[in-house]
Amino acid sequence: EAHAAIDTFTKYLDIDEDFATVLVEEGFSTLEELAYVPMKELLEIEGLDEPTVEALRERAKNALATIAQ
């Protein structure tokens, strides 16, 4: 499951495998979680700032909209 989540994140969020791995290690496994989890939870991840989190959430929401079509 972790590998599938990493693949999904790299494909749809335009991030590298290392960043995707950090997200999975922090407990995220779906685009929905990244799109809708409280921003505070993402900001608790070391190295993430508000602009990065906002961009990540926007990419996740856009990916979900694209997949739904």
Rank of each mutant, 00 (worst) to 15 (best):
V22T: 10
M39D: 06
A68Q: 12
Q69Y: 05
E50C: 09
T8Y: 12
R57D: 01
D14W: 09
I45L: 08
F9T: 00
K11Q: 08
D18N: 11
V24M: 07
A35R: 03
G47W: 10
L42V: 05
E58Y: 06
T10P: 01
L43A: 05
K11H: 09
V37W: 11
L13M: 04
Y12S: 03
D49R: 03
T30S: 10
A55N: 09
A55P: 01
I67N: 06
L64Q: 02
P51D: 13
D7N: 13
A55K: 10
T10L: 13
E41F: 14
E1G: 12
E54G: 07
Q69M: 07
V24T: 05
K40R: 11
M39S: 08
T66L: 15
V37P: 05
E41T: 14
K40W: 13
V53Y: 05
E25A: 14
E1L: 12
Y12V: 05
I67Q: 07
E1M: 12
L31Q: 00
K11P: 00
P38L: 08
A4E: 09
L56M: 05
V24D: 01
D18R: 13
L64F: 03
D14M: 13
D14L: 12
E32R: 08
E1N: 13
L48P: 02
D49W: 04
M39F: 08
D16T: 12
F19V: 10
R57V: 11
M39Y: 08
F19H: 03
D16M: 05
I15Y: 01
G27K: 02
D49G: 04
E54S: 11
T21V: 09
G47D: 04
K11N: 06
T30N: 06
P38D: 15
P51G: 12
A65P: 03
H3P: 07
E50T: 09
D16K: 07
G47A: 06
K61T: 07
N62H: 12
S29N: 11
T52S: 08
L31C: 02
A35G: 03
L23W: 01
T66A: 13
L64T: 03
E32C: 12
I15L: 06
Y12Q: 03
A4T: 11
E26G: 15
L48Q: 02
A63K: 03
I67Y: 05
E58P: 00
E17C: 10
I15C: 03
L23E: 00
P38Y: 06
N62Q: 15
L56N: 00
V53H: 02
A35D: 01
L48N: 01
D49T: 08
T52Y: 07
P38N: 12
L23I: 03
E50V: 14
R57P: 04
E1K: 11
F28Q: 01
Y36Q: 09
L23A: 01
D7P: 06
H3C: 10
T52R: 08
T10M: 15
A55W: 13
L34P: 00
A63R: 03
R57K: 12
